[in-house]
Design a protein around this nucleic acid. Structure first.
Length: 426
RNA sequence: GGAGGAGUGGCCGAGCGGCUGAUGGCGCUGGUCUUGAAAACCAGUAUACCGUCUAACGGUAUCGGGGGUUCAAAUCCUCCCUCCUCCGCCA
């Protein structure tokens, strides 16, 4: 959610932001109109309420002095009815403002490149050289299925399309990646590990911006107002919902491993094979709560923390800054990290690191006080994958494949895999 | 799931229909005193929204949340949520 004051004082910025994102500006107009309407009704209601309070006090005084107040009662009865009416109208107006405000996207940071879609994203840096294979590199699902460590048929049997069963070394590699990433982030990057619920309330989903706009992306338990998380961003960011944090606690840095669940509505036909786009996948996620003046510095650090994993695994990657048209709904700035996939001869997203500034903090009411005596301010929230486990799994199979179909184990993972050198058929 | 009990400001804890945003204590901040500290004393100490020259200020709301009764609700009624105790079930 945006700061309503900022929108009132600087309406142009909102219009420009919507245009930059390729969205219609009628939304901005609707917001301003609703906001004005609400303020008008609200102040009218408050004035009348004020009058009512004053007369009520007089009643109290007379009652204490054992005097009659019947004349006041007659007046108050009328006022009371009108107050009720006005308050109802004000509430309706407020709800309208809120419902519009909730679907307004964040305003992109000035450093975000302007563009229409992913083709306009800006490559920021590259690391590692894609390996030259003396043979035609296979896709990760070909390799995994052949080794017997990935079983998509079983996934389909148990749950349906876009599910997988990991078998033997497959399950173990997945687990190794989770542990490896958590270890690096906790021991080397100073994050606190948490393991929050994966089933969250509608309030939490609203807090981080998944609701109300993206309900069709979510798995919902409709009897219980509970949703399966599409990312740990939701449960971890909401850990401090409706709190005022002491300034010296910041920055707070959490890392969490969780499964993630996405309906992938509207992605029919996309990445139907392999581990790239499943309904359920594992992810290690980093989340930060920072003071506003540090958040961009912290975004760089967060991105570097995610990159560190790829460096240690020896997987070539590049970092791109998303352009305005490709930016997520709540994000003010996002870096995608893309890892090299030899079978496709291109880089593909494996992590997304974003600064939401106060967008989520405002929705979720996450504030902090610089000092005990200072006024509460909204924190800035950031998050980034560090990394998506399934896609890392896939990248390892492809980048470390041998011509005979076996897969070399990256050195840093060996301690997690009984010092195994390579993965062979189950 | 069943039966009880409880939710008040940063914390503890009064109030149970009308000068109560809310007594008191603790904590915190500032001051007096002191060589310094402690103690003592004095003062201040919630959040949000709206209005105004983004100012001192004014208004409104908030006693777990919603709804209701009433001229008037922290106080009465009702539904919901959370926590605690006991029972049942369960990885």
């Amino acid at each position: 959610m945006l700061d309503p004051k900022l929108v009132r004082n600087n309406y142009k910025a909102l219009e420009e932001a919507l245009k930059a994102r390729g969205m219609d500006v009628t939304l901005a107009k609707a917001f301003v109109a609703a906001d004005e309407e609400w303020r008008k009704i609200q102040s009218e209601a408050e004035d009348l309420r004020s009058k009512q309070n004053k007369l009520s006090e007089e009643v109290a005084v007379r009652k204490r002095e054992k005097q009659n107040a019947d004349d006041l009662f007659a007046q108050l009865k009328q006022i009371s009815a009108r107050v009720k009416e006005l308050q109802e109208k004000a509430k309706e107006a407020e709800e309208k403002v809120k419902s519009v405000a909730m679907v307004l996207p964040n305003i992109p940071h000035v450093s975000v490149p302007v563009g229409i879609d992913s083709r306009d994203n800006l490559e920021v840096r590259k690391w590692g050289e894609p390996k030259q294979f003396g043979f035609k590199p296979k896709t990760h699902d070909e390799i995994g299925v052949a080794l017997g460590i990935l079983n998509f048929e079983q996934g389909a049997k148990v749950s349906g399309a876009r599910f997988v069963n990991l078998v033997g070394m497959g399950a173990k590699l997945e687990r190794a990646l989770i542990n490896f990433m958590l270890d690096v982030h906790t021991k080397e990057h100073g994050y606190t590990e948490v393991m929050p619920p994966a089933l969250v309330s509608g309030a939490s989903m609203t807090g981080t911006g998944q609701l109300p706009k993206f309900e069709e992306e979510l798995y919902k338990c409709k009897d219980d107002d509970l949703y399966l998380i599409p990312t740990a961003e939701v449960c971890v960011t909401n850990l401090h919902r409706e709190e005022i944090l002491p300034g010296d606690m910041l920055p707070i840095k959490y890392v969490a491993y969780t499964p993630c669940f996405r309906r992938e509505a509207g992605s029919y036909g996309k990445d139907v094979k392999g581990l790239i786009r499943l309904h359920q996948f594992n992810k290690v996620e980093m989340v930060k709560f920072t003071e506003p003046e540090n958040s961009y510095q912290e975004l760089e650090a967060l991105t570097n923390n995610a990159e560190a994993i790829l460096k240690k695994l020896g997987l070539p990657y590049r970092v791109v800054a998303l352009c305005t048209g490709d930016l997520g709904f709540g994000s003010a700035k996002t870096y995608d990290i893309e890892v090299w996939f030899p079978s496709e001869g291109r880089y593909r997203e494996i992590s997304s690191c974003s600064n939401f500034e106060s967008f989520q903090a405002r929705r979720a009411e996450i504030r902090f006080k610089k000092d005990a005596s200072s006024k509460p301010e909204f924190v800035h929230t950031l998050n980034g994958s560090g990394l998506a486990i399934g896609r890392t799994f896939a990248a390892i199979l492809e980048n470390y494949q041998n011509e005979d179909g076996t897969v070399r184990v990256p050195d840093v993972l060996k301690p997690y895999l009984d010092n195994l050198d390579k993965i062979t058929a189950n």
